[in-house]
């Protein structure tokens, strides 16, 4: 009978619903860390090599790849020998700014970088009170300076 079929279907559906009711889906952020997938695209990280030299050589490729025009770089020269200098090469970024008011977290910059100097990190807490604060400088983005938020954990 048609009516019985309908009731049966509803009961089946609701059974699934009730079975999952005890599962907890909501993360109690910020009291609990948010679990992120490994390929999550959050705030950028500028990397350094094994000796702490900045990997970025200020080639401007990320800046041109960026569809939102969010990256601003000024290159400079550092002719000192490798152990003393700032970057891996004699060319480094004196200024490296990303405007998080513009960035759309597409990750193109990461793909464009020939030096593996920039990657998309896990930090996602990107809210500030002024537009000025949304522009993050090299000093904020370097892996040596950036703190990974305590409110996240990365999926294995």
């Amino acid at each position: 009978m048609r009516v019985l079929d309908v009731v049966k279907a509803i009961a089946q559906g609701l059974a699934t619903t009730f079975r999952h009711l005890p599962d907890r889906v909501t993360t109690q952020y910020p009291d609990e860390p948010v679990r992120l997938e490994r390929r999550f695209r959050g705030q950028h990280i500028l990397h350094v090599d094994e000796n702490g030299r900045e990997k970025c050589v200020a080639c401007f490729l990320c800046a041109i790849a960026c569809p939102a025009d969010a990256i601003y770089i000024e290159a400079a020269e550092d002719l000192r020998p490798y152990p003393e200098r700032i970057g891996v090469d004699i060319r480094y970024a004196r200024v490296y700014d990303i405007d998080y008011g513009k960035c759309i977290f597409c990750g193109f910059c990461e793909e464009a970088c020939p030096k593996d100097a920039i990657t998309m990190g896990p930090n996602f807490e990107l809210a500030w009170y002024t537009r000025e604060d949304m522009i993050k400088h090299k000093e904020d983005l370097l892996i040596t300076r950036q703190r990974v938020s305590p409110h996240l954990e990365i999926a294995p």
């Binding site: 200020a58 080639c59 090469d89 020939p114």
Partner: peptide, 9 residues
């Protein structure tokens, strides 16, 4: 092959 640091790149 240092196009990233080369001015001509």
């Amino acid at each position: 092959l240092d196009c990233p640091v080369c001015d001509k790149g």
